[in-house]
Each structure stands twice: as structure tokens, then as C-alpha cells.
Computed example of a mutant assay.
Amino acid sequence: MKIIISLITIVLSSFAAVSQTKTIHVFVALCDNIHQGIVPVPDKIGNGQDPKNNLYWGAGYGVKNFFKVKTKDWQLIQTVPSDDPIILERLLFKHITKDIYVLADAYDGAKIKDCTENFLRSANGQLSFELKEKSKTLDFGGGSDLLAYVGHNGLMDFESNPSYQESVTKIRDIIILACYSKRYFEPQVRKAKANPILWTTHLMAPEAYTLKSAIDGWIANESGEQIDERAAQSYHTYQKCGIRGARNLFTTGF
């Protein structure tokens, strides 16, 4: 009887672990020809106040369009009103087969510093907030299980010194898709006490296929090295840059 009870307990525990709700918060700094130190892109996709057409949001491989149109794994379930005027659009996606949610925020490109610092503070467990989705209460910001930043590396243009908590209740996984993100973000990520599962070593196009591949690996509970390889394979597929170059572009951990 004790053996049977033990087996039932193990099965129930395993089921609970598999079915646990998880949340992912993605911070997107909209591409902005005027307010960011970038090589200018065509005006239509480089307007940081126009999420609909923006390179990192509404364009073909932007976060909104890619997750809404180009992948079958995620479904847009809610457009969430934001009380913060610098968040121009906020979308909630749910995984088709798993109890996992992605909240994606499109930040005004002129407010890239706010976007960057909100991401870093959230990675430190700050700025937590809840969203209601039917009967569920979902935790985002510092309450998220995974956080990601997508966009220009603003730390190449400005200094940032957000305030961090000295102790955290848990170490949060993060992804930073921006040029040279490891070099520029590492001091801040260490202060935030976060775990970088994917960031970059060189110039890159921070488009959503890489984000989606990294999230797939995270959902599958893969190691940082496995997620790194997923990202490289995806980046090479879309950029045709050579797998060796793609592998050299991404890295994991400190």
C-alpha cells in the first residue's frame, strides 16, 4: 500500500510540474531612426511611434506579426489596455498546447531607456503586476518566469543605473536580443541577479524567429547550450549567414 501511495504521489507531482502555469514577458523597444543610435532603416519601419509598421513589432519578423501570423504555436488571446503611455501596444498570447503565456509590450522607440530599465528591474524581481485571463491570474514584470528584451542596444548610447534589490526570492531567466548584448548588459544583469540563457556577442538583427526558437527551448527545459544552438540554427535559416557565424553570435550564461 505504501508503494502504491508513493507512486501516486510521484505521478501527481509530475503532473503538477508539467501543468504549472508559466509566464513570459517580452519588452520590445520599437525601432526608431530619430531617437536611437542605429543605422537608419526605411522610414515606414523605423518610426518608433508607429507599432503597426515597426521593424520589431508589426513588420514581417516583428514580435507581434511573427507570433500572431507566422507561428502556429501561439494564439493572440487579448489586447491589453496599458495605463503607461510609453507602452504603445500590449498583447497577450497563449501557447496552443501548454499553459504558458507571453505578454509582449511595444515601447515607444523614443523611450528606449525606460524600456531597458523596466526590463532590468523586472529581471531583478521588481515591477510585478497581475493580469486576469478568464479564471486565471497571471504574474508579469518581476513575477514572470522568463523575461526578454528585443531591440536596439541602448546601452551603447546612454548610461543606465537602475536601482536593484540586493536579494531576490528567485533567479529569473532572461533573453537579450540586441547587438553585443553580453558585453554591454553583463554588469547590469549581474546586479539584477538574473540568469542569461541567451544573449549576443556581435551585431545582429533582433527579429522574432530567434526569440521564438529560444522560448521553445526554454519551454522544453533545455540547457543554455541547447537554447544557444536553437537560436543559431534559426538565425542561420532566416539570415543565411552561415551556421558557424550564427553559432559565434549567440552565447549563454556568464
Score class of each variant (00 low, 15 high):
residue 125 G to Y: 01
residue 189 V to L: 13
residue 153 N to A: 08
residue 81 P to Q: 13
residue 174 I to Q: 04
residue 64 K to Y: 06
residue 177 L to F: 12
residue 182 K to I: 09
residue 149 Y to K: 07
residue 98 K to P: 03
residue 79 T to V: 13
residue 98 K to C: 08
residue 96 I to G: 08
residue 117 E to K: 12
residue 165 Q to S: 14
residue 130 E to R: 08
residue 167 S to F: 07
residue 188 Q to Y: 08
residue 123 A to F: 03
residue 117 E to A: 09
residue 145 D to Y: 00
residue 118 N to Q: 12
residue 134 K to S: 12
residue 121 R to I: 10
residue 158 F to I: 07
residue 136 K to R: 13
residue 119 F to P: 09
residue 126 Q to A: 09
residue 62 G to W: 00
residue 107 Y to L: 04
residue 121 R to T: 15
residue 190 R to V: 05
residue 104 A to L: 10
residue 165 Q to Y: 09
residue 127 L to C: 02
residue 107 Y to D: 02
residue 101 Y to E: 07
residue 147 L to T: 03
residue 114 D to R: 07
residue 111 K to C: 02
residue 160 S to K: 05
residue 76 L to E: 15
residue 165 Q to N: 13
residue 72 K to Y: 14
residue 70 K to G: 04
residue 180 Y to L: 07
residue 127 L to G: 01
residue 67 F to S: 08
residue 111 K to W: 01
residue 186 E to I: 04
residue 105 D to W: 00
residue 153 N to L: 07
residue 86 I to S: 12
residue 128 S to D: 10
residue 112 I to K: 00
residue 93 F to G: 10
residue 120 L to C: 11
residue 166 E to S: 14
residue 62 G to T: 05
residue 137 T to A: 01
residue 142 G to H: 04
residue 105 D to Q: 09
residue 75 Q to S: 14
residue 148 A to V: 08
